[in-house]
């Protein structure tokens, strides 16, 4: 085995590997980034909970040696909320695909954000339902193709970050599976933030999405991420029309003094005890 500088093995469950992701899938890049970020933060493995729904992205918890729970499609956040409410001292991280987080589970997304509960949600945003073979998702760009949009999608997509911010999330950022180093830092910051943090990670699914959209190799998809991603600050100087087809990367929104749900709940309990 080639010795790499960073040893991922201590965070991986060897008996569940190899993973099921297609060669060239972006999800593995995010997995490694997540491990590096957690390692950097020096959080004890047993203090981390990873909850996921169902989908390619949601397979992640099976591979990592934390407290993990692989639940039902769309409900990852609700399980995470239950866990966090019961043990607020734990770091709870939720992994969802764009379908999981915003289609079947969209309701939970806005309500978790509204409450500003101290959970980190990482959306593995590949614009499609990878696992079921490439149906359109609520983040799929207008005009692009999926098995259920054979003549091009006509529905406007959600901007995950705009939605999160509007619904009440207090930390919102975007990165990609190309910007791996930036991703490390953003995951670190998301976990550290006290409140609901949403990290939208544009990731490549060449198999279910790329093939139908003139990006049949991972390289083409990674290039897309590199070319279309634009740092928040650079975007400020551009006119709206110059931003069409592009997406902002980096920290998009942060609010530090907003009441956090578990803390507020605790306060209320204390108050009621004195009555």
């Amino acid at each position: 085995m080639i010795k790499t500088k960073f040893d991922y093995n201590k965070y991986l469950r060897q008996n569940t590997l190899p993973h099921i992701w297609c060669p060239g899938c972006g999800d593995g890049i995010i997995l490694k980034s997540l491990i590096r970020a957690i390692d950097k933060l020096q959080i004890k493995k047993d203090d981390i909970v990873i909850a996921s729904g169902i989908g390619c992205a949601s397979r992640l918890p099976g591979y990592v040696d934390f407290n993990t729970i692989h639940t039902t499609h769309g409900r990852a956040l609700t399980f995470a909320i239950g866990i966090k409410m019961f043990k607020p001292r734990l770091k709870v991280i939720t992994i969802s695909g764009d379908g999981d987080a915003l289609a079947i589970g969209g309701n939970h997304f806005i309500h978790a954000a509204r409450r500003n509960i101290d959970i980190t949600l990482i959306v593995f945003n590949n614009y499609t339902y990878g696992m079921t073979g490439g149906q359109y998702s609520p983040t799929q760009p207008i005009g692009s193709y999926a098995t259920t949009t054979p003549y091009g999608n006509i529905e406007p997509p959600f901007d995950v970050c705009d939605l999160a911010k509007a619904a009440g999330a207090t930390w919102v950022a975007r990165s990609t599976s190309y910007h791996a180093l930036q991703l490390d830092k953003l995951i670190e910051a998301a976990i550290t933030h006290q409140g609901f943090s949403v990290l939208d990670v544009i990731t490549n699914c060449h198999i279910s999405y790329g093939r139908r959209n003139k990006m049949k190799s991972p390289v083409e998809m990674i290039t897309y991420q590199k070319e279309k991603g634009i740092p928040v600050r650079s975007a400020e100087n551009l006119k709206p029309e110059e931003l069409t087809g592009r997406f902002k990367t980096g920290l998009i929104y942060q609010k530090n003094d907003a009441p956090e749900f578990c803390a507020e709940y605790q306060k209320k309990l204390e108050l009621l005890k004195t009555k």
């Binding site: 079947i104 339902y129 696992m131 079921t132 073979g133 149906q135 098995t147 259920t148 054979p150 003549y151």
Partner: peptide
């Protein structure tokens, strides 16, 4: 319909027929 294995093909064929 909403996709779920092993049903997905059925409605994919139907969506193609409609399209």
């Amino acid at each position: 319909a909403y996709p779920i294995t092993p049903q997905t093909h059925i409605v994919e064929h139907l969506s193609q027929m409609v399209a």
